[in-house]
Deep mutational scan, measured.
Amino acid sequence: EDGINLEEIREFAKNFKIRRLSLGLTQTQVGQALTATEGPAYSQSAICRFEKLDITPKSAQKLKPVLEKWLNEAELRNQEGQQNLMEFVG
Rank of each mutant, 00 (worst) to 15 (best):
E1I: 14
D2Y: 14
D2G: 14
D2E: 12
G3I: 15
G3S: 15
N5W: 09
N5F: 12
N5D: 11
E8S: 05
E8A: 08
E8I: 07
I9K: 01
I9Y: 05
R10M: 09
E11S: 06
F12G: 00
A13P: 00
K14P: 02
K14R: 10
K14T: 07
N15I: 04
N15K: 14
N15S: 14
N15V: 05
F16V: 03
F16S: 04
F16Q: 03
I18K: 14
R20Y: 04
R20P: 00
L21E: 15
L21Y: 03
L21A: 02
L21G: 05
S22G: 13
S22T: 10
L23V: 00
L23E: 09
G24W: 00
G24H: 00
G24K: 08
G24T: 01
G24Y: 03
L25D: 00
L25A: 06
T26P: 00
Q27A: 11
Q27S: 11
Q29D: 14
Q29V: 03
V30I: 08
V30C: 04
G31A: 15
G31Y: 05
Q32P: 03
A33R: 04
L34K: 00
T35A: 13
A36E: 11
A36W: 00
T37A: 13
T37W: 06
T37H: 05
G39S: 05
G39M: 01
G39Q: 00
P40Y: 04
P40K: 13
A41V: 08
S43H: 05
S43N: 07
Q44D: 07
Q44W: 04
S45K: 14
S45Y: 12
C48M: 12
C48L: 07
C48T: 12
C48V: 10
C48H: 11
R49N: 14
R49D: 12
R49E: 12
R49Q: 13
E51G: 02
E51S: 01
E51Y: 03
E51F: 00
E51M: 01
K52H: 07
K52G: 11
K52T: 12
L53G: 15
D54T: 11
D54M: 08
D54S: 14
D54H: 03
D54L: 08
I55Y: 13
I55C: 15
T56C: 13
T56D: 15
P57I: 09
K58A: 14
K58W: 15
K58R: 11
S59C: 12
Q61H: 12
Q61L: 13
Q61V: 12
K62F: 10
K62Q: 13
K64Y: 14
K64G: 04
P65F: 08
P65A: 06
V66D: 06
E68S: 09
E68D: 12
E68I: 02
E68K: 03
K69S: 10
K69G: 05
W70L: 05
W70K: 07
L71D: 08
N72S: 12
N72H: 11
E73M: 11
E73D: 08
E73H: 09
A74C: 06
A74H: 01
L76C: 04
L76V: 13
R77N: 14
R77H: 09
R77S: 05
N78W: 09
N78R: 13
N78L: 10
Q79K: 14
Q79G: 09
E80G: 10
E80I: 14
E80V: 12
E80F: 11
E80C: 13
E80W: 06
G81W: 02
N84E: 11
N84G: 10
N84I: 02
N84M: 11
N84W: 04
L85M: 15
L85P: 11
M86Y: 10
M86T: 13
M86L: 12
M86K: 13
E87F: 01
E87L: 01
E87H: 11
F88D: 12
F88H: 13
F88T: 14
F88N: 10
V89T: 12
V89A: 13
